[in-house]
Design a protein around this nucleic acid. Structure first.
Lengths: 147, 147
DNA sequence: CACAATTATATTGTGCACAATTTGATGTCA
DNA sequence: TGACATCAAATTGTGCACAATATAATTGTG
């Protein structure tokens, strides 16, 4: 049994860790912007989807986010309690829970417009480089998922 | 108040989400390899550090991982209960908790050597492209952190 | 129409993350 | 030496993630 780890098992050589770590760094970098809006980072992702299209079902939120009801149900209840959204069953199909923005939730979009430019700056990259990196990371995620 | 979101607020245009999502995809992709070893993904990261150097303090684990004792203490207790590590106070400085691999924990490194090549394959990228991407993601994480 | 399969969400239980606080040991310095 | 700052972990409380299961509404089929 050798005593030193091979390079492939060194933490610093794991791209999975770089991604894991960057994801946490993003959440921290968003915090100063989201805290004053009363949003957590995952809640912000839900808001992006609702600003895009209101009245989505839990599934219509979970599919693009790759999250299930086990995560979303309690998260949406917290958002409801915070006055960001309403939750009510679809009248035509009582299985479906419709998530609608409140006036307050809808109004937050204007404040949110300041966030993307701030994050571009925080990334320390040029817009072009960041967009190229974005495509690569998207492709990586797709590959990992398609199993 | 406009009704449609500007492109910078669309979910699909957020690199933070691509990173967040890829991080989760990585954890899922590791699962079939780690489950049989009795490890979670964050526990695997701790094992990488201990295989590299045994007997680390909680801080010496948390610094490279960017995790604090609030996360690590319960995680290490679970690893202790699973027979992967021991936890004992340093005799010279009782404030410090030393984490040592058990024989079982040390032996798992041999099985872990099969993981990196499997993950390279799952990433769907060539080694060279993946290493280049790795450097970019590392730089992104550093930039986001350095505030 | 009855009833089994399917669908959408909710619930339960485990394991991270992280802020804020606490506990206990060590170091410092008047 | 004794008060006080500092340091390392642990604890507490909140909020994700996700597997597994449960519940209830709807659909499909004989």
């Amino acid at each position: 049994m050798s005593n030193s780890s091979p390079p492939e098992l060194l933490l610093e050589n794991q791209i999975c860790f770089a991604v894991y770590s960057a994801a946490h760094a993003f959440a921290q970098a968003y915090k100063p912007h989201l805290d004053p809006m009363g949003l957590t980072y995952p809640q912000y992702l839900v808001m992006l989807l609702l600003w895009e299209q209101d009245g989505r079902s839990v599934n219509a939120l979970g599919q693009p986010l790759h999250l299930d009801s086990g995560t979303l149900t309690p998260l949406l209840k917290r958002m409801e309690k915070a006055g960001l959204v309403t939750r009510q069953r679809d009248a035509k199909d009582e299985r479906i829970m419709r998530i609608h923005l409140t006036d307050h939730g809808r109004a937050l979009r204007e404040r949110a417009r300041a966030i993307p430019p701030a994050m571009l700056c925080a990334s320390g990259l040029e817009l072009e480089g960041l967009m190229a990196l974005h495509e690569e990371v998207k492709a990586l995620g797709r590959n990992l998922r398609e199993k």
